[in-house]
Design a protein around this nucleic acid. Sequence first.
RNA 1: GCCGCAGUAGCUCAGUCGGUAGAGCACCUGAUUUGUAAUCAGGGGGUCGGCGGUUCGAUCCCGUCCUGCGGCACCA
Length: 648
Amino acid sequence: MVNITLPDGSVRSFEKPVSGAELAASIGPGLAKAALAVKIDGQMKDLALPIAKDAKVAIVTAKDPDALELIRHDAAHVLAQAVQELFPGTQITFGPAIENGFYYDFARKEPFTPEDFARIEQRMREIVDRNLPIERSIWERDRLKAWFREHGESFKAEWIDELPKGEEISVYRQGDWLDMCVGPHLPATGKLPKAFKLTKVSGTYWRGNPKNPVLQRIYGTAWASEKDLKEYLHQIEEAEKRDHRKIGREMNLFHLQEEAVGSVFWHPNGWTLWRTLERYMRARLEAAGYVEVKTPQLVDRKLWEESGHWDKFKDAMFLATPRAETAHAEDGERIYAIKPMNCPGAVQIFKQGLKSYRDLPLRMAEFGSCHRYEPSGAMHGIMRVRAFTQDDAHIFCTEPQIEAESVAFCDLLRTIYKDLGFADFFVKFSDRPAVRAGSDAVWDQAEGALRAAAEAAGLDLQLNPGEGAFYGPKLEFVLRDAIGRDWQCGTLQVDFVLPERLDASYIGEDGQRHRPVMLHRAILGSFERFTGILIEHFAGKFPLWLAPVQAVAATIVSDADGYAGEVEAALAAAGLRAKTDLRNEKINYKIREHSLAKVPILLILGRKEAEERKVTIRRLGEERQESLALDEAVAKLKELAKPPVPLA
RNA sequence: GCCGCAGUAGCUCAGUCGGUAGAGCACCUGAUUUGUAAUCAGGGGGUCGGCGGUUCGAUCCCGUCCUGCGGCACCA
């Protein structure tokens, strides 16, 4: 007797083990047709699997959000089958469901091109139409290996050896195509909705290792319905419209050029945005008890050797030396490196003069300009560059102070993210990596302290094993933007290693020398990247206090030109960034242009306004307008443009 | 760095089956003084990413380098 509890709480009893398909059929023919899989005690399983024990069972249909993973995984298999039918000699390797879709990695000499996509998609649809039953079976290890060998599938054959001994190997077959796979899968290819689309092709390494052969990965997206697919494609388009590289050009914020790969040319508008952000950060840091410093760009290699950076990161460091012919004698063998990080410099400042326990915690901030020789393929607009400015700070403190400092930092970070328009963030805890400095005892201590601090700050932690910095564990703060994308920005790292290596010390209450602990922390990460994130988050429509150009006074007739100048001056006197547009153009033209440039406030000035000393305000994205006396308008805009904290 | 794709005017893009290029917007000039998302007319502007090769002739074909784009890998 098997008792099946359905999601509505009702119980059905069967004499013999029953499959999900039979169960669905017993409930109704509609459900039997719609059934894609079953969830047995919350676990997704094949519809054909006999259920022998009492269980809570739910029939999964395309409407179930969990069905998407199934659909996407099956889409990957159908893709692989289609590719092998169309391109004989192509080997299959691995193809999972991923967020929004799926991919499959193939081994084939000739490249796939996006032009092949239409043909492959067509064949995928045919395979769906064939409605091939998808059957699971258990294969004996050597037999399966031999089968793959015979069929020229060397990657699959190799993989079998990697699977834990003694584990069952399941094979899913659809028609005469099969793949080794843990499943679950749909009951037949005909159940796969045709709401899929191949999106891109890229290179990848077998098992992710650059030493291994290069495979070709075909990406696709798959959904339960045509409508969902359309919606997703539309979202992608919207994301493209927010691209900071595009908006950066349109709003004249910055540019990049090949003579300075990985460095940003900031235009007046972009630099205004930067400076506003910097002044804001400065104000917040000052209020939180930080001091600000600036450390050198060019530092003798010797210091990097002492700090340990040379050892681990010299490949990513830019070197600078005087030309040999003209170098002064004292520079003989000296090699300078352009700083990739600010921490060793901060320690040098800490080490000047004797520090007392009374000086701790010492919160030393630096908008530190760093250079790193990033791999060429890593560059991306202003988000990933070789020259960047961190909103860095190093807190020198005692071990008992770690917790309070961490809690205070989390508060500061929360405030700043909120001010900048990000309500949503989560936190990852990264512990010791394989390659690291410092003893295990020191790591135990550091990880323990950071974890305790995170708990005290009331953070929910996601574990991120092995991803810590070489000198210590870290918290990583990840923002969620307006269209749901995640950006890792803030970080808090506990470091017992660097003070030791660089011999930083303070005099304790006992009159003896002690090692301070160093907390490395950043909130924005880098100004370059964070500016890019702000651009994409707001789609260029910045909050008034951040907008590079806050208001434009646009005239309708040239008779209002003089008055427009007065308006501009009044706005400037109130601390607003304003311009005039006196061009000989129609007001329609001016409104269109400044709207596209995402200027938040337009002041329309015609003969009437000039005569009555009024302005007509039109806010970006609104057709509604408002006519106010000049003084009143300036006061109102000043209030609207007020930053979250008075700017330093 | 790796795989693939791309590079034509400031921007977006068309074009040349090898005979030194074109549109729209932008820019300049003139006319127009205009009331809430593009006024009209005229004009200037390109060593068709760099270098080398094939060819009578290369923007087009071949090689190579650079840069960008999408992933992978990387992200102290």
